Simulated scan of single mutants.
Amino acid sequence: MSTPQPLSTIMPPALSDADQDALTDLHIRGTPPNTLRAYERDLIYITAWKQAAFDAPLSWPESETVALRFILDHSRSLENVNPADPALTVAEALIAQGLRKTLACPAPSTLDRRIASWRAFHRMKNLASPFDAPLLRQTRAKARRAAAKPKAPKSANPITREVLEAVLATCDHSLRGIRDRAVLMLGWASGGRRRSEITGLMRQDVDLKDYATDGIIWIDLVGTKTTAKGKTPRLVLKGRAAQALAFWIEMGRIDAGPLFRPITRNDNPLDRRLSPDGIYQIVQKRMDMAGFPKGFATPHGLRSGFLTQAALDGTPIQAAMRLSLHRSLAQAQQYYDDVEITENPATDLLG
């Protein structure tokens, strides 16, 4: 009776060319387009990095030595290193190719994403990833800890109800004003939607069947950062927010296609969808028109403002999360914790 091999020495079965093609095709069809584009960019970068560092193409599976060098090269600043440092030479070559911007230490999230892509390429080939080795896992953890910085808020200030009202007051009765009012109200009142979620909405994602009788609009998000495609619960829009959205649909004659669109100088909607940067421009323009200082808030202020206002109003956090679609109670709780203790509704329980 033969002695069983340790799990660490068992290699995955080799795939035939046909099976490899089928596996790759399945990964492509089962991966979101944005993720595929990120994979493509990362593969270009990783390939160029190895060529510059080792004068060799990528290997499958890649060696732990190469993977370790990749982590070390991207876990420190190269701005004041010895001119003979090999990592500096490689970085300058990548900058010359337009694949790297500076010699500063890349953000830990950027390195994490490239490593995740590299691991995904190994999975597509049914190969073990070198990044799963204990030494590399420990090195990556140390590098992440060394580069850790206090997390800056995505918006300098939350767009609370008071701020939102001041911003909405700048929206006139032009088609642009009607659109901007609908964007801001939907983005805030539906739970604090992200820019991509707002711009991704199509006319068919908005259900007006109960609007005439109950003043309610149902919204179907295809997917969000925290929910899978097709698994996102329906959201509801009521009151002034529902009225603003219905008025935009009517006045913009949005019968099909993208819900929110660019507006021409002649105040006519285009057929294409508004971009996420368009949402950023709307928020910045309206904040400026309302008299707020430059950089006071970003579109994420709609999300943080919704949760902050929910805390100020004494709304149970679980109820707010049903609209914000936060998966983590701890993450949503941060907005509640940011409310000044003197503004906490619980301080008035006795009256």
Rank of each mutant, 00 (worst) to 15 (best):
K142P: 04
L94C: 10
P153T: 08
A244S: 14
A116R: 04
A319S: 11
D205H: 12
L235V: 01
T110K: 01
F296K: 07
Y39D: 02
V236K: 05
R203W: 10
H27Q: 05
K50A: 00
G98D: 12
A104N: 13
W248C: 03
R69W: 01
K231T: 08
A116V: 00
R240H: 15
D313S: 11
K209A: 13
S59D: 14
R234T: 10
K151L: 04
L270H: 12
F260W: 07
P276Y: 08
R76M: 02
L184M: 12
E64G: 06
A332S: 00
A244P: 02
L168Q: 05
T232S: 02
A256I: 05
A320W: 04
T224P: 06
I159G: 10
A330L: 12
R100H: 11
P316W: 08
S2V: 09
Y280T: 14
A152M: 10
L136D: 05
P61C: 07
T264P: 01
D207Y: 01
A91D: 06
K154S: 12
R303E: 07
L307M: 13
G239R: 02
V339W: 03
E165K: 11
G314D: 03
Y335F: 12
T31I: 07
E165C: 08
S16Q: 00
S59Y: 11
D21R: 14
K238P: 09
V206L: 10
A48N: 03
V206S: 09
T110V: 06
A156G: 07
T213E: 12
A244K: 11
A84E: 15
A311Q: 03
I217Y: 03
F54Y: 15
A48K: 09
L186S: 06
P130I: 04
T224Y: 11
A256L: 09
W118G: 01
Y45D: 11
R137V: 14
A320D: 08
I71E: 03
K142C: 12
R203T: 13
T298A: 14
L274G: 10
I28Q: 10
T65A: 15
L58P: 02
L15N: 02
L186G: 00
K229C: 00
